[in-house]
Simulated assay, not measured.
Amino acid sequence: MRAQRAKTTILVCAGAALAAAGVSAPVSASSAPRTRPGAAVVDCAENPQVRPGTFMLACGDGNNVLTSLRWSRWQPQSAVAEGRDMVNDCRPYCAAGHFHSYRVRVRLDEPQHRPGHPGQWHYTRITLTYPADRPADTPRVVTTRLWN
């Protein structure tokens, strides 16, 4: 009984303080709106990026990078851009290869909590859609998981 009275007193005082400050508080935790902070895409150096102009897909060797990205949407559930996919043909081998540029649509989605970073969300899946030419042996639509 004493614990309940103390809890009630604290809640009443907190509510009065918020009212005095001109801020409204939700009646209960279950009535609070569930909002998700914006998600980011994590780059090769493990830095979160929002609306990056370039994004490395091949972190190990740098032979595939998205460039000239123009984001038309960046929302908590997904992000969409158009740009160029710069791909090294690695012929006769990657160090002697040539980069080729392809128009691409990019979609980031499936946001999840970022491990080890409380409160941060990151996209975990990327879909590339090639509306015209595309790299050899590459389907028109490619969907893959992003690293953490």
Rank of each mutant, 00 (worst) to 15 (best):
A3N: 09
A3H: 13
R5T: 05
R5V: 10
R5C: 04
R5K: 14
K7E: 10
T8Y: 11
L11C: 10
V12G: 06
C13V: 14
C13S: 12
A14P: 00
A14R: 03
A14C: 07
G15S: 13
G15K: 09
A16P: 01
A19S: 14
A21P: 08
G22V: 14
P26K: 00
P26N: 12
P26R: 00
V27L: 10
V27W: 08
S28D: 07
A32N: 07
R34E: 03
R34K: 14
R34M: 05
G38F: 04
A39D: 02
V42W: 07
D43E: 05
D43S: 09
C44R: 02
T54C: 01
F55M: 00
F55Y: 12
L57F: 13
L57Y: 05
L57I: 13
A58V: 02
C59N: 08
G60L: 14
G62P: 01
V65S: 11
S68L: 09
W71K: 07
S72Y: 06
R73H: 09
W74M: 10
W74P: 07
P76A: 06
Q77R: 15
S78C: 08
V80N: 14
A81D: 13
D85Q: 06
M86Q: 13
V87H: 05
D89W: 04
D89L: 13
Y93A: 14
C94W: 05
C94H: 06
A95V: 12
A95I: 12
G97W: 07
G97K: 08
H98A: 10
H100C: 02
H100S: 09
S101F: 00
S101R: 11
V104A: 04
V104E: 01
R105S: 06
V106D: 03
R107L: 06
D109R: 07
E110M: 04
P111Y: 01
Q112A: 08
Q112E: 07
H113M: 03
P115T: 03
G116A: 05
H117D: 07
T124Q: 06
T129C: 07
R134D: 03
P135C: 11
A136Q: 10
D137R: 14
T138E: 07
P139M: 01
P139K: 01
R140N: 08
V142N: 01
V142D: 03
T143E: 13
T144H: 06
L146D: 03
